[in-house]
Amino acid sequence: MKYRKERLDRGIKARCEDIFALSSYKEISYLLFPRVLPVAILLILPLLQGVIGLYWEKVLMITCMIALLALSWDLMASVGLISLGQALFFGTGAYITGYLNFAFKLPPILTIPLGTIGGALFSTLLLLPVLRLRGVYFAIVTLTMPLLLSRFIETTKILGGTEGMSALSPLPNIWVELYVPVFALLICLFGFRRLINEDYGLVLQGIRDNDRAVMSGAINIYWFKAQAVFIAGIAGAFAGAFMTHYYRFVGMPAFAMDYSILPLTAAVLGGVGTFAGPTIGAFILMPLSESLRAVGTLRVVFYSAILIICVVGLPEGIFHYLRRKYHQFERMVDVG
């Protein structure tokens, strides 16, 4: 007797695929549950300061920031641009925000938007000449970009040099500190998902699959790639801009390797190309990393071990796995 695993779509999935989804509350809730639940949790978590403590609220905030960077990574990956340097967006956003506040005493309500747009624009201009590179060649250039900028600041001693700029304006209150990241994350997550399914997003996906065919479709792929990098840059630079005012300091750590590696790991862990995946990845990685602080120096060992187990066990990514489990069931069938 031999058995084989067979996967079947749940009946309710087929009933939810069209306008029929509106036929009863069951179908509606089947569709809404996986979307509404995470949103609700994200919106409620900042209210539970008394329950989970201020420390974990801060972890939530930083997690949102890494998730933003991971979303930005995923958007670039959707155009076929594999980035190893999300710190470029983070750092440029952080430095522009910090400088505007430090030099011109602009309030955070102005510096954060300006830093976000400025950082995204500056990074895009910096990457413009290398947009014709593909795959690993593009990746290596993006890896060097943050290093290049931080060394440049170090040697020329501009923008505070190695000291950085400190005593920046703080964020007004704890509610801003917690809810702005949550809303930014939700806007980016659902915005990017919408964008990539629009006709515009199809062009971006086309560039990833076969850029020559897109070119022969009378579309300037470099212009579209630049737009995608700019949009991804907005998400990344916002994280940098926001953290600058949270830390009340900006310095060379803004270009740290962490901001390149963590989003990438989150995306791979969660499932590339889905936007929800990288977000889930970030929400697993960051709390995990924080809770392992108790282990002391062995933290990195445990952290890496868990990561390896996840990636080997679920190479498709956690989100793809969860989605499959939600829509399909498995059974063993007798194949003689």
């Binding site: 006709d199 515009y200 199809l202 062009v203 996906q205 086309g206 699959d209 076969n210 020559r212 065919a213 897109v214 022969s216 479709g217 009378a218 579309i219």
Partner: peptide, 23 residues
């Protein structure tokens, strides 16, 4: 192209959206 390379992850009609999007 001699070697067909469609946009494999898109459905057939969505493959055509891309040239239709051009200026």
């Amino acid at each position: 192209f001699q070697m067909v390379k469609p946009f494999y992850q898109l459905s057939a009609f969505k493959n055509l959206i891309i040239p239709l999007y051009s200026s």
